[in-house]
Amino acid sequence: MNDVLPYRAMAHNNAWANHRLLTACLGLSQDEFAAKRTGFFPSLRATLNHILIIDHFYVDAMEGGTLGPAAFADQEPCATVAALKEAQAAVDRRLLNVVEALDAAGLQRIVSVHRGTSIQRERMDRLLLHLFQHQVHHRGQAHAMLSGTSVNPPQLDEFFAVGEAPLRAAEFAELGWSEERVWGELDR
């Protein structure tokens, strides 16, 4: 198995789950989106913005940038779901570009994560796994919050597979993807 393929698949699944969750959130009123809820962060808006700013922080580092703590300057940079969906899609595309450019040696590359007064050095593969776990963790919280609204939360725990269902095919088309892009050469 190609060393990079699991990371590529996780990056695509990450973007797909963000797309599904934020598309569902478009059905919320602004008041529902910002309403106080039980969770680590006090609202869907705060939780989903947290995912976005952490993505900016780590993806910038993976790209060789020095954004560091400046990523946290505005804890809720997107006031609306529409703005958040657009911003999240943009950082998800950046993450996909990072992962799609990797080879086995790139997974072992040391990434400098600027933390203000220090620089953390971490291998790319470990940093990617950390970021994916962070996303899953907070998307789960947002999913639970969404279940307390007028909008049904979307299915997020399915991983796409060869021969995906029509809904996934439509979403992949919306995202400009194909199974071949995610999985590379397919054995059919």
Rank of each mutant, 00 (worst) to 15 (best):
H19I: 01
R20P: 03
L21D: 02
A24H: 01
C25W: 01
L26Y: 01
L28T: 01
S29F: 05
S29A: 08
F33T: 07
F33G: 07
F33V: 07
A34V: 00
A35N: 06
T38K: 13
F40N: 04
F41G: 10
P42F: 01
L44W: 04
R45A: 14
H56T: 00
F57P: 06
P69V: 11
A71F: 08
F72H: 09
A73Q: 11
E76W: 00
E76D: 08
C78V: 04
C78N: 08
C78M: 12
A83G: 03
A89M: 08
R93P: 07
L96V: 11
N97K: 09
V98I: 12
V98D: 07
E100D: 12
A101K: 11
A104Y: 08
A105C: 03
G106T: 06
L107R: 10
V113M: 00
R115C: 15
G116W: 00
G116L: 00
I119T: 15
R123P: 13
L131A: 07
F132Q: 06
Q133V: 10
Q135I: 12
Q135V: 13
Q135C: 15
V136M: 12
H143K: 02
H143Q: 07
A144S: 11
S147M: 08
S150W: 02
V151R: 04
N152K: 15
P153T: 01
P153Q: 01
P153K: 02
